[in-house]
Amino acid sequence: MRLVASDIDGTILDRAGQISERTARAFRACEAAGVAVVFVTGRPARWLTPLIEQLGHTGTVICSNGALLYDLATMSVVASQGMPRHTMLEVRDIIRGLFPESAFAAETTVEFVMETRYAYPNHRHLLDHVRHGELERLVSGDEVVKFMAKIEGLTPEEYFDAVAPHIAHLVAVTHSAFDITLLEMAPLGVNKAVTLAEYAHTLGIPPEEVVAFGDMPNDVEMLTWAGEGYAMSSGHPQALAATELHAPGIEDDGVAQVLERKLAALRRAG
């Protein structure tokens, strides 16, 4: 084990927005033992404060499902892969043709923008804080790193199964939200595993020496790429089906349990 790659939400961060002290100690112990740590998340860079405030982490984070590499030490973008504007609009039109009630939003390297109706019914608070309107006006270049579509009245799996076959030739599509039916789209060929593999290569670390943790469908590629990919027992069935390695659930500090065991093995090995 030379690199630990961990998802955040549902893997180490619970629904109350807390990372347990046991989990924090396990990550610090990894770094003290010379094991690199990188967090790999669907979150945008602006939502990384739990890593700073609760872990004191100042390293690299892979954000937006692999489309953005961010350095917490300098609070700056290291690299990004943007979706062509015309592709975003084409995907929007395809989804709208299938489900006219869909609403759309986009993450760029610097901000979150959304159609005004994206705010309803559960994001109204955003209207006073973000730019909203028609996407053609809000997005002028190819800077979108994450495109989102949401709907009411369907499960995430129903929405994904109905939409993905129609857009998979244009974008990488997944989902990871607990409480809303939301599709998350990245530039074609981009996912957590792709960017993690590139990052590990820069460190000279092969996949067999990477231990990864995740809990949702957007973690599947990462869990299958890593030498040891652990799905959280509290996670989504698709994540659990992707790997034979299952960590105890987040409520039982599953990531910490696995890391403690592996660190103890490293110490015994000298």
Rank of each mutant, 00 (worst) to 15 (best):
V144R: 04
S233Q: 14
V91G: 03
R43G: 00
P44Y: 11
M88W: 02
G56P: 01
L183P: 06
P248V: 02
Q18R: 15
L188G: 08
Q81D: 06
E184Y: 07
T202V: 07
V130L: 09
V220K: 02
A256W: 13
E158H: 12
R85I: 13
H169L: 05
F213T: 08
D7G: 07
L48N: 04
G17R: 01
D142Y: 06
V211E: 01
A5M: 10
L263W: 04
M185Y: 02
T49P: 01
T181K: 04
Q18Y: 01
F39V: 12
G97V: 13
Y199M: 03
P207S: 09
G17S: 10
L203T: 05
D93K: 14
A239I: 07
N191E: 06
D142W: 06
P187V: 12
A239T: 03
R2C: 00
F147C: 09
A200K: 02
P50Q: 10
A119M: 00
I151F: 06
N191F: 10
F99M: 14
G59V: 14
S102F: 10
A67Q: 08
R2D: 13
F39I: 10
S140N: 02
E209Y: 03
A162C: 02
F213C: 12
Y230I: 07
M114E: 12
T109P: 01
V190G: 02
L259C: 05
R268V: 14
R28F: 06
A33Q: 13
V35Y: 03
P156N: 13
T108G: 00
N122V: 11
G59S: 01
T49G: 04
E90N: 06
R96I: 03
G17E: 12
V38S: 01
I205H: 08
E228M: 14
V38K: 04
